[in-house]
């Protein structure tokens, strides 16, 4: 871990200014991912702006009947909130499917969105990795890629977004609220928040440098049945091979997004029209462009089968 300087900001705008004004500066919230990466010198910030005092830790009702989740609301607090459990079950379910109790107590809503890939080649600084070191190559594509992306990847990067929460937020059509150094707010639809790797896999999101997430807003509740199904080798404390976030209405229509398959939560709204026809009808179009590797080809049928399980459980209920 390189040396850095440290400050605690008092307001969101002050924090954004502190980061925007200093090359190499980064926000520090829960730290559960950033500190891990700093120890390995995958992240090498020269200055940390600790945002824990920004009072962004509340969940409030919005005028539109939705919820505004402060950026610093912990994963545990968010999953525990009575309104979230009642009206946004897919979100609560996704959160508690991720990480461990200890990590969820510390991890924040904004930090969860910004967590970086768990690709093992990204984590090993001896290996080429375009995400960690642009232009160095991708060791994963022809390497050990069992965990990695099957769709939306590029010849530069096949990393996945490792999180669960964002997959649920994608199904809920959440909005990410930000502020920049000039104090200007911005609202980014979750669909536009994470990027596909393309030729710039080192850029995970569409946030501008120094732009600070202040909240995540959920629209009015959708009703329906909320499911988050996570498939992994061990029963807990593991990243998804494939996950499905779904909100299914009683008439069989619904929304679905997949985790563990792409550089961002994978959802194609047009494919959802086929929900009443069953899982294969949906995934055939959702994964039409899939380009799996030898190691992760199983993810495509697994995605279909997992969605089938989700639909079948609903029919049984």
């Amino acid at each position: 871990m390189r040396l850095f300087t440290y400050e605690r900001a008092k307001t969101p705008a002050e924090a954004a200014r502190a980061v925007a004004g200093q090359p190499g500066a980064k926000f520090l919230a829960g730290g559960t991912n950033l500190i891990d990466l700093m120890k390995l010198e995958i992240e090498t910030p020269t200055h940390l702006v600790d945002v824990q005092d920004l009072k962004l830790d509340r969940i409030e009702q919005t005028g539109e009947g939705g919820l505004k989740i402060g950026a610093l609301v912990s994963n545990t607090a968010l999953a525990s909130d009575a309104r979230v459990r009642r009206d946004y079950g897919v979100l609560a379910r996704a959160i508690v499917a991720g990480a461990s109790g200890q990590l969820r107590n510390k991890a924040t809503t904004a930090g969860n969105l910004l967590q970086r890939t768990r690709c093992p080649y990204f984590y090993d600084t001896n290996m080429p990795c375009n995400k960690r070191k642009p232009g160095s190559g991708c060791a994963a594509i022809a390497g050990y890629s069992r965990q990695l992306a099957v769709i939306g990847a590029s010849d530069q990067c096949i990393a996945t977004h490792p999180g669960d929460m964002a997959v649920a937020l994608r199904v809920l059509d959440a909005t990410v609220e930000t502020v920049n150094a000039a104090g200007e707010p911005r609202a980014i639809p979750i669909a536009d928040f994470h990027r596909l790797p393309g030729a710039t896999p080192h850029i995970d999101t569409n946030l501008a440098p120094g732009e600070l997430i202040t909240a995540v807003t959920l629209p009015r509740p959708l009703g329906g049945r909320h499911v988050y199904e996570k498939v992994r080798d061990r029963a807990s404390y593991a990243f998804a091979l494939v996950s499905v976030a779904a909100v299914i209405q009683w008439d069989g229509t619904g929304r679905v997004a997949f985790g563990g398959v792409a550089h961002k939560p994978w959802r194609i709204e047009a494919a959802e029209a086929a929900m009443p026809q069953g899982a294969a009808a949906v995934t055939t179009s959702l994964f039409a462009d899939a380009k799996p590797t030898h190691d992760n080809a199983f993810k495509v049928p697994l995605a279909t089968r997992t969605l089938a399980a989700v639909i079948a459980e609903g029919n049984a209920a």
Binding site: T32, L103, K106
Partner: peptide, 8 residues
């Protein structure tokens, strides 16, 4: 409870 290794 938290992981004290991931906290400065």
């Amino acid at each position: 409870r938290i992981n004290s290794c991931l906290s400065l």
